[in-house]
Amino acid sequence: MSQLEIRDLWASIDGETILKGVNLVVPKGEVHALMGPNGAGKSTLGKILAGDPEYTVERGEILLDGENILELSPDERARKGLFLAFQYPVEVPGVTIANFLRLALQAKLGREVGVAEFWTKVKKALEILDWDEGYLSRYLNEGFSGGEKKRNEILQLLVLEPTYAVLDETDSGLDIDALKVVARGVNAMRGPNFGALVITHYQRILNYIQPDKVHVMMDGRVVATGGPELALELEAKGYEWLREKVKEGA
């Protein structure tokens, strides 16, 4: 049961149903891609996994290693090892990255984290991301460029070491160098004790993060699942091709 499993998940916001029966499994140790056109519900799925209170879950289950986490608050989910890299990370003025990261790590581990232990971890993460120590004393995301915000999400991923991570369009708006850095961060996490769902609109990031599987979402449901070649096929033929194919199947 070492997997992140979504079963028949239905969810809405302001009375509009966005997810219409999502089924998806990401086993621990694997990296899956979730692709789909704009408005398919990909980002909504990411936020609902993290417990965004803006959305109402109407039906279904989210099972983290077999445990239904739907009733848990966002922080309880995080402490159980779930992580969402935000598409639009939020600015928190006056709170330094260092201070925030240490508090988050302490919350995750449920114990005090000494300065030495903290620095060892953070330095390693900064090296992987080729990032300057100076960022640690900056305020969380305040005045950051889009690329810096995304890099900061991956820094948090590396320091907090979750069991399952959802990356919500971390590649959007990044130039090729920034994209490589982000990919390096995710690849550094790869291993038997880590599973990830990489949400993306484009195939490009998958050149740097090789997915074990590719899922495609349309109109609030997962409509296709395949190997890495599915992403390439989509890139070549477009989402319309798949839409037609799904219709034929139905």
Binding site: S73, A78, A107, L160
Partner: peptide, 15 residues
């Protein structure tokens, strides 16, 4: 702001 709260909560901090 609710978004700030959610962001920080999603990193393990209680509300």
């Amino acid at each position: 702001n609710d978004e700030q709260i959610f962001y920080l909560q999603s990193r393990g901090l209680e509300e």
